Computed example of a mutant assay.
Amino acid sequence: MQPDKELREQILELIPQQAPFRFVDEILEVDGDRIVGTYRFKEDEFFYPGHFPGAPITPGVILIETMAQTGAVGHGIYLMMQKGMSLDDIKSQVTVFSLADQVEFFTMVAPGTRVIVTGEKVFYRRGALRSSVTMAGEDGNLICRGTLTGTGVRLHG
């Protein structure tokens, strides 16, 4: 059974990255093994004027960050909720990268493109989530993929 819209919106609200560095618009699906989210790269994103002037494309590091925010952070928040972690405990943590492995890029992403990110849990233990993550366009064509690991760390105290 798919979590209701209210739970998916709550997970989205708990993702600590905020504008202009939030790259998740919506969580479509989530369960213990998988998450699917979307993001549309706006025409006026802060990085386009410099990457590249007159011919903007989305930087690869931003694509990895986009995959991580859904596939590691959003999914990790869901898994913490399922383990009974309080919302205050979840809010006191951020997820930091501990591994970005075998990341491959297949095509460029232009301003205005809507992407679909799918993360599949490889393992979740001791606060670390390793996920196999893919990003595709709305047409289903693969943009990039990789294995990402995020670990929750406390922000304060």
Rank of each mutant, 00 (worst) to 15 (best):
G112N: 10
F46Y: 13
D139R: 00
P49E: 13
T113D: 12
T118Q: 12
I57W: 05
E43N: 11
G157W: 07
E104H: 10
A19I: 10
L99I: 10
Y39G: 01
D4E: 06
G146D: 03
G50F: 14
F46V: 06
M1H: 03
H51K: 13
G54A: 10
I90S: 04
E6S: 09
F41M: 11
R154W: 12
F47D: 02
T134K: 08
G74T: 05
I15L: 00
P53A: 04
F21M: 12
D31M: 07
D44M: 07
S132Q: 11
Y124W: 14
S131Y: 07
D89L: 04
P111R: 08
E104R: 15
Q82T: 02
V115L: 13
G127C: 07
G112A: 13
D101Y: 11
M108P: 06
R40K: 07
A55E: 11
S98N: 13
Y39H: 13
Q93H: 10
L148Q: 09
V96M: 14
T134Y: 00
R154P: 04
I15W: 00
P59S: 12
Q69I: 05
V96W: 14
F97E: 02
L12G: 01
R145C: 12
F123S: 08
E138C: 08
I62K: 05
T151V: 15
S131W: 01
I62S: 10
E43V: 06
V61P: 03
H75W: 00
G37A: 06
L142I: 07
A136C: 09
L99C: 09
T134R: 10
E104C: 06
